[in-house]
Structure formats: structure tokens, C-alpha cells
């Protein structure tokens, strides 16, 4: 299986302090990769490298390589707006724009210069369906997205990401601010779209990682301790630290 994104010896420094110590990690196409580890282990920092969200943090330097379809995203030639269209992101707190559901989901398309109304209409509908929120919003597309529940807002945000048809979707604890039922809906939707998208998800919820991911990467103190198939990692991890973390002995 081809890899959509590949990190090699990726190091990130805050000033002189090295926060990521040479990460090698592949993201196989149309697979869900879970990044787990205690707070401060570097998993979110790593995730943010994947669409250059750390660019604007003062004093950050990055070395090594991070390739999207074999092209280094940190190359000076990379257009960051284009990169973020190809590498979408969903955050912990739902962050819809303060305008209508329709305009939220159409936002990325319009930004990308698409003017064909019929196409936009169709993409909005498809994306909302893929995000498993269509039935709940179809009669309220012109209502302000902020008027919906947290779980619905998060699915609208996911639809917004799906609309631009990214190659990889980054999710930073997308369900930790939601109740279990809403979280379950998002897990279901991730499983249902995984044949079309590649997903990297940071989660503190071990059950979530084990239920939905194909591959799991365990981070600790800025290092990638272990990566493997989720089945193997959860049933017989190679490293003692992984086993201890999964069993709640630390973190």
C-alpha cells in the first residue's frame, strides 16, 4: 500500500530545545493512523508539522523531511494554502465560521476559486452526507452553524474539510469535547469515509484508537517509541513503555 505522507528523521526545535527527536513515520493511503501518547509527548506537535501549522510559532525550526506524495512540504516551492487544501485539519473544539451551514462547507471551495454553483451545491451536499450530518441539517442549510449542537458543529467542520477533497485529514482529538453519543457518530463516520481518505488522528482515548484505527503510533517524550498495526500494538506491543502506557501505568 502506497504511503500518502512520509516523515523521515523529522526534528522540531523550539529555539535550541529539541521537542521532536527524529520521527520516522508513514501514513498508508486510505488507512486511519492513530497517534497516542501522554500530554507533552509530541504527538500534536508532530500532527501540526503535517500541514505546517507550526510555521507561525516563533522560534520553531524543523529539520528532516516530511513528504506528501514524494514532495517535501517544507520545500520553499510549497504553496501553503494549496498544502492545507490537500492536508485538511479538524480541531478539538468545533470551530465553524459564524455563518450559515452551507457557506461553512462551501468556504474552502470558494477559496479554491470554484465558482460553478451547481458543483458547489453538489459538493456541499455530498460532504454533509459523508460527514453523517446531512439528515440533521438539510432543512436548515441557511441557519448559522453556531446554532447547532457541539457534535453537529464538529460534523459540519468535518464536512467543510471533506468538501475540498483533501488527500489526508488531520484530526487533533476531534471527539474529546463531545459526549459519547456524538463521539460515536464521529467514529462511525471516520470508518465510513476511510475508503476515500487517509486519516491521522491524535487521541487520548485508547478505546477510540483501538476501535477505529488501522495503525497506531505511540509517542513518548518527543520520540516515536513504537508504530505497528493497531491489532499488534494493542495485543502484543514490542516495547515495555507501550504496554505500560496502554495499561495506564503512566501518562
Amino acid at each position: 500500500m502506497a504511503n500518502v505522507m512520509t516523515a523521515r528523521n523529522l526534528r522540531l526545535y523550539y529555539g535550541k530545545h529539541e521537542a521532536l527527536h527524529g520521527i520516522d513515520l508513514d501514513f498508508p493511503k486510505q488507512k486511519i493512523t492513530a497517534l497516542i501518547g501522554p500530554s507533552g509527548s509530541g504527538k500534536s506537535t508532530f500532527l501540526r508539522c503535517m500541514n505546517r501549522m507550526n510555521d507561525l510559532v516563533a522560534g520553531v525550526t524543523i529539520t528532516g523531511s516530511l513528504k506528501l506524495d514524494n514532495k517535501d512540504i517544507y520545500s520553499p516551492k510549497t504553496d501553503v494554502v494549496d498544502l492545507r487544501k490537500r492536508v485538511g485539519m479538524v480541531f478539538q473544539q468545533p470551530n465553524p465560521f459564524p455563518f450559515s451551514v452551507f457557506d461553512n462547507v462551501a468556504f474552502g471551495l470558494r477559496l479554491a476559486g470554484i465558482k460553478d454553483r451547481a458543483l458547489i451545491q453538489e459538493r456541499v451536499e455530498t460532504s454533509l452526507k459523508q460527514a453523517a450530518v446531512w439528515d440533521e441539517v438539510k432543512d436548515k442549510l441557511n441557519e448559522n452553524a453556531l446554532a447547532f449542537s457541539g457534535g453537529q458543529q464538529q460534523r459540519i467542520c468535518i464536512a467543510r474539510v471533506l468538501a475540498v477533497q483533501p488527500e489526508i485529514i488531520l484530526m487533533d482529538e476531534p471527539t474529546s469535547a463531545l459526549d459519547p453519543v456524538s463521539a460515536g457518530k464521529i467514529e462511525d463516520l471516520l470508518l465510513s469515509i476511510q475508503d476515500k481518505f487517509t486519516i491521522a488522528i491524535v487521541t487520548h482515548n485508547m478505546q477510540q484508537a483501538s476501535r477505529i484505527s488501522d495503525q497506531t503510533a505511540f509517542f513518548l517524550d518527543g520520540k516515536l517509541v513504537e508504530v505497528g498495526s493497531t491489532k499488534q500494538l494493542f495485543m502484543a506491543p514490542q516495547k515495555e513503555e507501550t504496554s505500560d502506557y496502554l495499561n495506564g501505568k503512566f501518562g
Binding site: Q207, S210, R211, T230, K231, F234, M235
Partner: peptide, 8 residues
């Protein structure tokens, strides 16, 4: 065993 470990 896999169901126990992954679905808990």
C-alpha cells in the same frame, strides 16, 4: 481475543 483487545 482481538475483539476483546480492540473493542473492549
Amino acid at each position: 481475543l482481538m475483539l476483546i483487545a480492540l473493542q473492549q
